[in-house]
Structures are given as C-alpha cells and as structure tokens.
C-alpha cells in the first residue's frame, strides 16, 4: 500500500497536533498509525510514560478516543478489567489496547503483562520502545541495548537488550509482531491484522527518540530505518507460532548490498559515543550470525 492510498483509507487523525511530545517524537508517530489502523472504537490504557505526558493535561487531551492513565505496573491489569467490563455489557466491537513504554513493559509491567498473556486476555499490547525511561530523563531499562549511554549507565550499558517479543511469543499467544515508527505502513498493516485476531496480541515497536538517543529531530525516521537496514532491529511476525520475516527485513537478507553496516547506525547517535571500534566489530559479527539464523527460520514454527 502507498501513502496516498492509505490517506484515502484512513484520513482521520486520532493523535491531534499541538500536543506536548518533543519535536520529532517517534512514539507519537507510531501511535498515530496504530490508531489509524484501529479506528475510533478503541480504548487506550496507558501506564506512566512519555505517552501520559504527550496526551496533554486536564481539561484537554490530544487523543480523540477513550483513554485512561494507570499506575506504572498496572497497564495489563487495568486493560483486563476493561475487557471484562465490555464483555459483561455485551460490547463486542471495541478494541482494548495497552500503550506502554519499554520500561513499563520489560521491567515494571512484565508480571502483569505475562499474567494477561497467560489468561489470553482479549486485547492488543503495544510496547513502544525508545530503549530507556525517557519520561524521567533517560535512565536505562531492560530494553536499553548494550553500549548505550543513559544517565544510569554513563559508560554505556554492559548488559544486552531483553528480547520482549520472543518472551511474549513463548507465552504461545496467537499473534506477536515487531515494527518500527519509520515504517508506518508496516505498522498499520500489522495493527489491522492484529485487530481481527482474538486473544492477547503483542506488537513491539522501535520508536527513536531524539533527546534520549541524541540525534537531530529531523533524523527520527532515518535512524529507525538504519536500525532495520543494519539488522539491529528485525521486523517480523509470529502468527500461531510460525515465524515470518517482514518485507523490509527480508529485503536486507535477500539483497546484501541493501544492508547498512552496524557502524552507520551506531555512529549516527550520540548515545553510542562511548562504544569502541572493537566493540562495533564484535557487534557486527553478532548481527551477521543472527541474520543467518533468521534466514533459516523464515516460514517455520518457532517452538516445539
């Protein structure tokens, strides 16, 4: 689908301009496309995060669908309650989603998220991943990648990034996907697909963040694209346990000349300035190995 076509299909905006997100925020761009795909019969549950700030302050909001803010760890629990309430009232055409940051997902909310997936609660969980606690000024989360500077990892994070999408897939939920705010149409299609599936669906979206990742606001889309083109971030779906690479990631596997080096991705961001050349080289080798394995998995069941 092209931008033009999707404009005809989904012209309505549900994230209104004049909100308090930073200039060039990848997270608002992602939410804009998620809501275009879901339409107005959607209820958003948003645990503490940048999301709670960019929607604005009472008595005005930038979000034009029902939206509720809840405590940091409580996103999936509150969503489960709303799903139960709607079921009790017989309202069948409303989509309940949780819109949570990576800290809210990989760290503090992981237990209630896992619980909801175990119960196969009928909702879509979106993790928008800006790879740190951005709302409170960039502290590391379980989803911060190795090497990244944050205020709590001044010399770069030592540990690697927690793989939330695979952790969720291991719950054997019907649909897991990854996306990135730099690929709005990929996100739009996946969200539309998730909308008609029943049960717990999980979509993990990489959303570059100019102040936290230290790059110029105009590069938000470009940086996300570099993440995908370098293989640092993979776009895929796991539908009923079967793994499918999405087009942008398949492209770099099938046409190695379309691949960008990990170095290009790292060097474009101030947060990686403490990473040494030998570390970049090692990271490149890890990514090369990962891509080889992924190529073999494409189209196959992921679990026994």
């Amino acid at each position: 689908m092209s931008a033009k076509k999707v404009f005809q299909e989904a012209p309505e905006e549900y994230v209104l301009p004049g909100n308090s997100a930073c200039q060039g925020c990848g997270s608002t761009l992602a939410l804009r496309w998620v809501l275009k795909a879901l339409g107005k019969k959607t209820v958003i549950v948003n645990p503490a995060s940048c999301g709670c700030v960019y929607v604005g302050l009472y008595p005005r909001t930038a979000i034009s669908v029902p939206y509720i803010q809840v405590a940091f760890a409580a996103g999936p629990a509150a969503a489960s309650g709303i799903v139960g309430g709607l079921e009790a009232r017989g309202e069948k055409d409303v989509t309940v989603i949780c819109w949570a940051g990576d800290g809210g997902t990989a760290d503090i909310g992981v237990s209630s998220l896992s619980g909801s997936a175990e119960r196969n609660t009928n909702y879509i969980y979106f993790c928008y991943d800006n790879e740190a606690y951005m709302n409170t000024g960039t502290q590391r989360s379980g989803s911060t990648p190795a090497g990244a500077w944050t205020t709590t990892t001044p010399m770069g994070k030592k540990e690697g990034k927690k793989d939330m999408a695979l952790i969720m897939a291991a719950h054997r939920i019907p649909y897991v996907a990854t996306s990135c705010s730099s690929y709005p149409l990929d996100l739009y299609d996946k969200t539309k697909k998730a909308k008609i599936i029943k049960g717990t669906r999980y979509i993990h979206i990489l959303t570059p963040c100019p102040p936290g990742w230290r790059f110029d606001t105009e590069l938000t889309v470009k940086i996300g694209r570099l993440a995908v083109q370098s293989g640092m971030w993979l776009l895929y779906e796991i539908e009923n346990g079967v793994f499918h690479l999405s087009a942008p990631s398949r492209k770099i596997l099938e046409n190695p000349e379309k691949r960008v080096s990990v170095r290009d991705y790292i060097k474009a961001q101030g947060r990686f300035r403490v990473v040494r050349e030998d570390e970049i080289k090692r990271l490149q080798e890890t990514i090369d190995e990962k891509l080889e394995k992924v190529a073999e998995l494409d189209g196959k069941p992921l679990f026994f």
Partner: peptide, 9 residues
C-alpha cells in the same frame, strides 16, 4: 478531558 488540537497550546 476533551480532545482538542493544541492541547498544550
């Protein structure tokens, strides 16, 4: 809250 453009101005 009421949805509005310019929620913070």
């Amino acid at each position: 809250s009421t949805p509005s453009k310019g929620s913070i101005g």
